[in-house]
Computed example of a mutant assay.
Amino acid sequence: MVHRAIHHKGRGALTNPASRFSATAGEDFDDGWDTLDRAAEEDDTAPATHLHRDPTRRVISRNESPDVPFSASINPYKGCAHGCIYCFARPTHEYLDHSSGLDFETEIYYKPDAAELFEAELRHPRYRCEAITLGANTDPYQPDDRHLGITRSILEVAHRFNQPISIITKGAHVTRDLDLIGDLAHRNLASVFVSLTSLDNGLKRHLEPRAAAPAQRLRTIEALAHAGVPTGALVAPVIPMITDAEIEHLVGAAADAGATRAGYVMLRLPHAIKHLFREWLAAHYPERAEHVMSLINQMRGGADYDSAWGTRMTGTGTYADLIAKRFALACRRTGINGKRFSLDTTAFRVPPAAGDQIGFDF
């Protein structure tokens, strides 16, 4: 069902467009009694979040993209209640017969057996240790993980197997697992990248409504770094005329908080995200919308998005080159290294399984 654009409190998307795989689609229409306008004025509540069990049989996913600095990842959740309007993972919800709009933020799938499945895959005779990224698609520390605790259960398995883990998050409650992450880090088996998009609280509320506030994320970087965890900042996404002016401030703030690595990603608008983002622009930045999209088109070969490997993360053209130079200069000024953390893959071991017989010499 395609709904009239309404700004729901605590949600990023303004509509819930039909999945591109849906055989049917609906559209709201005005019945002549101003029904739609009155509904928009009266609907000031946030749509509720619904949790669904994900019956997956495997948790380690693999990719061969040359743009991504890892080949193995785990996503404890499908969908994300942080509600970031720009999230490149939104279209994946359409494979579940959901919308990439509000459904992505409210219909959350969780993997209750993730830890058991993870352990089974690590015990498989053909498994060869490599660093695994948590949060490659959706945030492992999104709001519902506070009570579900799935991410911690995965870290507990990694801890027992000496399995290296790299975490990407904008959720401040990653620090609740500092006991595990810190111990892994002391053995060079863990690193964390905290996503920073803007230092503007007002912008953050519209752009990524349920993610941690900017100050919280900086405190998270500080806490992780203080605990000896290799910590980086991911300036992502860089949005033309919305967040691009903050690049130097974001890198500087991250460095001051203790980050020693940094990376950036340009805004990506695959599939339905291009429409969701245009709606968001029209609602929150109508005076800039045309200029924003013009710059996006300039770095995407005239289109809203270009998925070509090698350039999809950075874009092409004069504007994209300028952003790359500014970011590199900001890193040099602050002493931040742009290289990825290198974790130890040689310490991996398979511990005895529950019930295994242990022999003793007397």
Rank of each mutant, 00 (worst) to 15 (best):
V174G: 12
V157Q: 02
I167P: 06
D179C: 12
H173A: 10
I154T: 09
S153Y: 03
I167F: 10
I154H: 05
I167N: 01
P164M: 09
A172V: 08
K170S: 14
L155Y: 00
L148G: 06
A158H: 02
H147A: 10
P164W: 03
R152E: 00
I150V: 15
D145G: 13
I167E: 05
R176A: 11
V174F: 09
N162Q: 06
G182N: 05
K170C: 12
R176G: 06
G182F: 08
H173S: 12
L155N: 10
I165C: 04
L180K: 11
K170Y: 02
R146F: 00
D179W: 07
E156T: 14
I150D: 02
Q163S: 10
D144Q: 14
R152A: 08
T175V: 15
I167R: 01
L148D: 00
D179G: 15
T169A: 06
I165M: 11
K170G: 07
L180F: 01
R152Y: 09
H159T: 10
D144N: 10
P164L: 15
D177R: 11
G171R: 10
R146H: 07
R160F: 13
L178N: 13
R160L: 11
I165V: 15
D145Q: 12
H173P: 04
T151R: 08
I168N: 03
V157H: 06
S153P: 02
I154A: 12
G182K: 11
K170T: 05
K170N: 06
V157T: 09
R146T: 00
R160D: 12
T151A: 15
L155S: 12
S166F: 06
R146A: 14
G149W: 05
L178A: 12
R160S: 14
N162L: 05
T169M: 09
I154N: 03
R152C: 10
T169D: 04
L155H: 02
V174M: 08
I181R: 07
V174C: 13
L178K: 11
K170Q: 06
E156W: 04
T169I: 13
H173L: 09
N162W: 03
Q163Y: 07
L180T: 11
D144H: 12
S166R: 01
T169H: 06
A158L: 12
D144T: 02
G149Y: 01
Q163W: 04
R176L: 09
I167K: 04
H173Y: 04
D179Q: 13
L155V: 13
